[in-house]
Amino acid sequence: MAKAFMAYPELRSPFEAKEIHPEGSATVLYQGKTITLSETGNGDGLLINPRDLGQINGFDIKPEGACFRDLCIPLNDQLLVEQNGRQWFNLTGFADLLDQPYVADHAASVWSFAEIPAKRANMMLDAMAPEIELTDRNGQVVRLADLKGKKALIVTWSSW
């Protein structure tokens, strides 16, 4: 039997235990971003301050709805929820409406969202590259959209 290689035993658990966010906060994961929310509404779903929506998924609250470029989702009392005189945006309800899958760990108050399918429609229809943002090893943000005018090879590899 050939010897197994690339086990990297020293890298199996390289991370020390630390808290994910301060007590009472919540964390949202979306497209490589980790967003800490200092306040959320009550309930099983994730109710966020409407002002936090943009930093999570790029949608803005406008009179015509929650909008990203030409896409506007009309708001109703299922998406904008009143609790004790405060208004919250129902982020998980919004995801359900957009068929956006997510996984939640309620005990840890962490919600992880997959990409919004509507944002990927152009790739599946006419092969337009997805608009992703990556951070390179120098800390520079690399947007595929910024590479227009050049040819690009994007290639994956791994240490394993």
Partner: peptide, 18 residues
Amino acid sequence: DFVIICAAQDTGGEAAAG
């Protein structure tokens, strides 16, 4: 006018792929 983006798919982060 040609770029390569090499993306390590590595949860071990910098320690593993760097």
